[in-house]
Design a protein around this nucleic acid. Sequence first.
DNA 1: GGAAAATCCTCGCAAACGTGAGGATTGTTC
DNA 2: GAACAATCCTCACGTTTGCGAGGATTTTCC
Lengths: 88, 88
Amino acid sequence: MKITIDNAASIGKVVRASRKVQKIRQDDAAGSIGVSENFLGKIERGGESVQWGKLFQVLEGLGVRVLLDVPESVAAYLNEPANRQDKR
Amino acid sequence: MKITIDNAASIGKVVRASRKVQKIRQDDAAGSIGVSENFLGKIERGGESVQWGKLFQVLEGLGVRVLLDVPESVAAYLNEPANRQDKR
DNA sequence: GGAAAATCCTCGCAAACGTGAGGATTGTTC
DNA sequence: GAACAATCCTCACGTTTGCGAGGATTTTCC
């Protein structure tokens, strides 16, 4: 199910819910994800000044996917050959 | 249209695409959103250590919505009265 | 209701943040 | 290809980051 994020802080609730549903403690989740317990706690309490890369790491670690909802024109722009950068 | 974010840095491409489609320069977009030009540039170049709250501000300013894809159990958890916090 | 579990808070640390400004580099237009 | 537009990079600044650790507080369980 997809949840819309209305404000930056509310992502913390989803992070906590995801962890609780898996019945994992904060310190254990933090350890396996590779961030500090303090940091995970800060996210869950709605910290907005956390680094995006580390937040994304936490989301991934908890199995939460991030999607962006954009106008069709943006998707079309991204699919133009000139704007692609397929490197494999 | 919904775009899945596979890594933290790729959000920058979507930000740039959203801005370009609206035919706005970096400095103008940054000004109207309320962040520095340097900062917006950093996001667009894939900066991962940017603050989530400010990144979210940029996304909002460009009309990009953030969604999280979670298991049904997480959504159910969030809807339990004990875990809700409706304050209006 | 008390014990245990879990979470939160404060500290000090080294590193890096976002900002404004100025100049360098790259991209676009004619 | 030159001129202009747009973006990138470096600098210095004051502030704040994430971390590990230890103790305080809150929550959960029996």
